[in-house]
Write a protein that binds this DNA or RNA. Structure first.
Lengths: 112, 112
DNA sequence: TTCGGTAGTTCAGAAAATACGAACATATGA
DNA sequence: TCATATGTTCGTATTTTCTGAACTACCGAA
């Protein structure tokens, strides 16, 4: 099991962020992580439980979020502690994340 | 040659926009279209001329932008008139495009 | 009205990215 | 030590993207 890699904030790229969040599952996970401040394990997310996502797929999703620089993952016992790197990303790309999450929220509201 | 399809603004999806703009070439084209208000043909873009992009690839890029709802394309004689649908998109998803274009600009500045 | 050039599209096969089952790794508690 | 839980990795199937070649549509000149 190779160690988890996190890009330093200055190496975070816009295209990687957009790509990561262009997947509705990943966007939902990230949004949920955003609203709930405390670290959460991969399988604890409501957006994950709702759809039935195979765990290998889930693992990939978290890797994409991680390597895009959006989240920080750390092993804590048997599970993973995932936290958003929002503050850093917001400082580097002001308004980017907000705009994206708002848009998703808006879209979700329409279907409600 | 099948007719060009443009989604109506209410059918525009965030994930499609993010996907479209997660490609640096498409993002550059769109940004350029943004800054220059008047309609431009596909091959007229500086970002296109700089890199040497095969025209079949270019055609696909424009299709992705079009079907994401980001641009409007219209045949005008032998060439294409492409215009940004920014105003509509901004109304539907306030701040989204701005955040993205700012982020790309910021990133470009760093490499300058 | 035909010919030549220009701008872009479509098609088909190659290449790259993604999805997911099965096997594996790692930590915990009994 | 063993059973269980959380997540990763690997291999392969599927999907998406890229691009050269052929094609379409339009224009202007002869």
């Amino acid at each position: 099991m190779r160690p988890l890699t996190h890009p330093s904030i200055e190496n975070v790229r816009v295209e990687a962020i957009l790509h990561a969040l262009s997947d509705p599952v990943r966007a939902a996970i990230y949004a949920e992580m955003q609203s709930d401040g405390c670290p959460q394990s991969c399988s604890s997310f409501a957006s994950v439980r709702a759809r039935e996502i195979p765990k290998s797929t889930l693992s990939q999703h978290f890797r994409v979020l991680r390597e895009a620089g959006l989240i920080h993952s750390e092993r804590q016992g048997v599970e993973m502690r995932n936290t958003s790197r929002y503050a850093e990303v917001e400082q580097r790309f002001p308004g980017l994340i907000c705009g994206i999450l708002n848009a998703y929220r808006q879209q979700a509201d329409e279907n409600a």
